[in-house]
């Protein structure tokens, strides 16, 4: 395990170094990411300016969900870059090369890329969460702050898990990756707003299948003293963030299944 982590660290450093080879483009991309994710929030702000409230939720409350989700997503995008770009590796036939080495494939894929540009989103999520904290969080104790950090990390687990699943899909087809983008980018988009505004199908999907609600609105509603949300009692909401790591472990199992399938079709 520590050996894997050590190797992963080496691989990541290499990926970062080759990433930095075009500095002009790098700076533009970093600025662009901050701008792009910033505009997403501008849209939310503009809508609140026009409508005042989102079905009873105030702007600063929505900011809590928005900030937590985006921070988790930013971390996942940064660390999960290798899985996100996996289709290119498969297309070029580079995956065979990874199989020829006596190391775990998921570690090698994770180590094949890291995208510091994604941290532009981290800035935006952090700023929005800070705004929420200042306007809501005067009374938060350490336990509650711990819960927020736990939610962010756990959210990152869910999003990395989704990227692993998206990469796994490449073993079947490299054409339809957009569908996985629904779950990552679309999941973040959905989780930025309180899940109770969606229909029952989406609500259940994001609670029990892709547990984004478990790392976001459920604990978030506890913090906002909203009482039971989405029909889940408050005590369960405290434990809900554990679903994140669990989801990640399951996605790694699915990955292994995909690798087996790749090796039996050789496509």
């Amino acid at each position: 395990m520590s050996y894997s982590l050590h190797l992963y660290g080496r691989l990541i450093l290499i990926a970062l170094r080759s990433r930095m080879q075009y500095p002009a483009s790098f700076v533009m991309q970093l600025a662009g990411t901050a701008l792009l994710t910033g505009t997403e929030f501008v849209a939310v702000w503009a809508l609140f300016a026009r409508f005042g409230t989102l079905a009873g939720w105030r702007l600063e409350e929505v900011c809590l969900f928005y900030g937590m989700s985006n921070l988790g997503y930013a971390l996942a995008e940064c660390l999960g870059e290798g899985f996100d770009k996996f289709a290119q590796q498969v297309r070029k036939g580079d995956f065979d090369r990874l199989l020829l080495r006596p190391c775990s494939t998921s570690m090698q894929v994770a180590g094949s890329g890291m995208d510091p540009m994604r941290l532009g989103r981290l800035v935006q999520g952090g700023a929005v969460l800070a705004y929420a904290a200042v306007s809501l969080g005067g009374a938060w104790d350490w336990l509650e702050i711990g819960l927020i950090i736990g939610c962010i990390l756990s959210g990152a687990c869910v999003f990395v898990g989704l990227l692993v699943l998206q990469a796994t899909l490449c073993f079947w087809t490299i054409e339809s990756l957009e569908i996985a983008n629904v779950l990552t980018h679309g999941g973040n988009e959905a989780a930025q707003f309180p899940f109770d505004i969606y229909g029952p199908g989406l609500r259940r999907f994001f609670t029990f299948v892709v547990p984004l609600a478990c790392v976001n609105i459920l604990p978030g509603a506890v913090l906002l003293e909203r009482g039971p949300t989405l029909g889940i009692p408050a005590w369960a909401s405290w434990g809900a963030p554990l679903m994140g790591p669990l989801f990640f472990l399951i996605s790694l199992r699915v990955w292994e299944f995909g690798v087996r399938r790749y090796r039996s079709t050789g496509t």
Partner: peptide, 22 residues
């Protein structure tokens, strides 16, 4: 197709492979 890292000096690719194969 090469098994070396495209952007790395050859020596570092060798060292990395050495670690992978322990």
């Amino acid at each position: 197709r090469t098994q070396l890292w495209w952007d790395l000096p050859v020596r570092e690719s060798f060292e990395l492979l050495g670690e992978m194969y322990r």
